[in-house]
Design a protein around this nucleic acid. Sequence first.
DNA 1: ATGAGTGTATAGTATTTACGACACATGACA
DNA 2: TGTCATGTGTCGTAAATACTATACACTCAT
Lengths: 123, 123
Amino acid sequence: MTRFGSTVRELREQLRQDDPRFSLRQVAQRVGIEPAYLSKIERGDVAPPSEATTGRLAEELGVDRDWLLALAGKVSSDLQEIIRRHPESFAELIRKLKEAPEDAILRVVREVRDGERYVAHPG
Amino acid sequence: MTRFGSTVRELREQLRQDDPRFSLRQVAQRVGIEPAYLSKIERGDVAPPSEATTGRLAEELGVDRDWLLALAGKVSSDLQEIIRRHPESFAELIRKLKEAPEDAILRVVREVRDGERYVAHPG
DNA sequence: ATGAGTGTATAGTATTTACGACACATGACA
DNA sequence: TGTCATGTGTCGTAAATACTATACACTCAT
């Protein structure tokens, strides 16, 4: 159903072309899981791994953690915690941005980033 | 640890003052769970229920679904799905708003709501 | 031909999630 | 003094989550 496994495999094989340390076994060891498990993950034989494991996998493969988590069908727990502090506001904001194209979201991001009017003042 | 159970109980007992249909048993029946289970939920004897059950509970108690889900330590799955479509943008946006006060978040919400520049045009 | 490294097949498991079933004690009401 | 509704205590459990352990077959260089 998801492209998680095949994506991980492709990423790993790309890296492997330049560096033999990216064999399934060695990556599994660095990530801290059994090779057999990573094999099943890459072939989609099992569901994507936990948030923690996916995070270490993302770092190992040099891709964005939130991006890989999304492929795994998850949302980072630290983001969820932030949302839970203002559930109604964030809910409205996110649902409003549901139909928005990527660049519109990025514009909001940029506005928030630039405008110090949005962040709490340190002094 | 969480105030989920006690909050549900308080809400229910408030409603009950005007309407005897808000006994634990009757609410449980309308929500579609066993009274014993709701009892344990309200006393914090068990973890908050599933997203679906929490949603029905919110409706029954007349409170915001996302708000009650937050109390349950969850984020609505439809919000998560939206985030997963643009994981990196949303991650940055949400983390940027982490330190922002409620009214700053609301200002962003309002800007997005008003500015049709953010939403996809139907025509 | 053997040892090292590769990926994979099979089987099993601890923990968590999300409840249901049933019996019980209490209090009000007729 | 039944009976009706209330909340609760105890026990059990199906399904999902997130893996481990072991053994196997293959390839390639020595």
